[in-house]
């Protein structure tokens, strides 16, 4: 059982003045796994996600990405390489699809952008890839020339997913991806995420405050409170046998965990 982790986070710390947004966070993420991070608003979940991607400067600690060739310390990665990594092997899915999509260009261009970023210059091929990924995320490929604002919230979120997945990333960071969706739409997205994770062997860090979402999606779970990880383990361990007072409160406050 010597599987290499895809990502290791060691003692990651980020403060905003007096506030400890992330206090010495450590974990490893393995290929094909979904790691859920739950906690209430202000617990540091989103900051952690941004800190992992080095989208904001961190105070101390280390994030190491183990791709097939050699381990990469994100902090030491030159900015061009890091930005490139974020557009190829990593992906970021925003809670609000309007933040993750270009609303003024068509669905096809939204999906094609990452391909054009990495130098693809064949219109026909880009279009073929865009239709393929539309189908993968269950959007009719006929909608390729439609603008995202004509899509429903669930479709926009799936389009955002396609936009990220088109470069076949290994790691996807998601910030409340099901946040603004109604329950039936949520279910469809959850199911889609689950099957994509399996077929593409994706690793996902999923930030949410919805225990139902992590119960169905996440293999492992970290519970955050006040910038600290107060409990972590297999999702069912943490939810069925919560040890920390905060986790117990969180689980008992959920209607149908």
């Amino acid at each position: 059982m010597t599987i290499q982790p895809l990502l290791t986070v060691e003692q990651l710390t980020k403060t905003y003045g007096e506030i400890q947004a992330c206090d010495r966070i450590s974990f490893s993420l393995y290929p094909g796994q979904i790691l859920g991070i739950i906690g209430e608003s202000g617990s540091g979940k989103t900051t952690l996600l941004n800190a992992i991607a080095h989208r904001l400067p961190i105070d101390s600690g280390q994030v190491t990405y183990h791709n097939s060739i050699k381990p990469t310390h994100l902090a030491q990665l030159p900015e061009p390489d890091r930005r490139r990594l974020m557009r190829t092997e990593w992906g970021f899915v925003q809670q609000n699809p309007r933040d993750g999509l270009r609303m003024n260009v068509t669905a096809g261009a939204n999906i094609g952008e990452r391909l054009m970023d990495i130098g693809q210059r064949h219109y026909g091929n880009i279009r073929t890839a865009a239709s393929k990924w539309l189908a993968q995320v269950e959007i009719p490929p006929e909608r390729i020339d439609a603008f995202p604002h004509t899509f429903s919230g669930g479709m926009q979120q799936r389009l955002q997913l396609a936009r990220v997945l088109v470069t076949q990333p290994k790691l996807v960071l998601m910030d409340e991806p099901t946040g603004g969706l109604d329950v039936s739409v949520q279910a469809r997205l959850l199911d889609l995420l689950r099957s994509l994770v399996r077929t593409l062997n994706l690793s996902v860090i999923l930030v949410t405050h919805d225990i139902g979402v992590v119960r169905l999606l996440a293999h492992r779970l970290m519970v955050m409170q006040g910038g600290q990880v107060v409990e972590q383990g297999l999702t069912d361990q943490v939810l069925d046998d919560p040890q920390h007072p905060y986790t117990q409160q969180l689980v008992s406050a959920t209607l149908l965990p």
Binding site: G112, R114, M116, D117, G119, D145
Partner: peptide
């Protein structure tokens, strides 16, 4: 500085599409 010009091609893509 980083020669990130993919976004410009999005505009051309949109032209051809439209």
């Amino acid at each position: 500085a980083l020669e990130e010009y993919g976004a410009m091609y999005v505009k051309l893509y949109e032209d051809i599409t439209q």
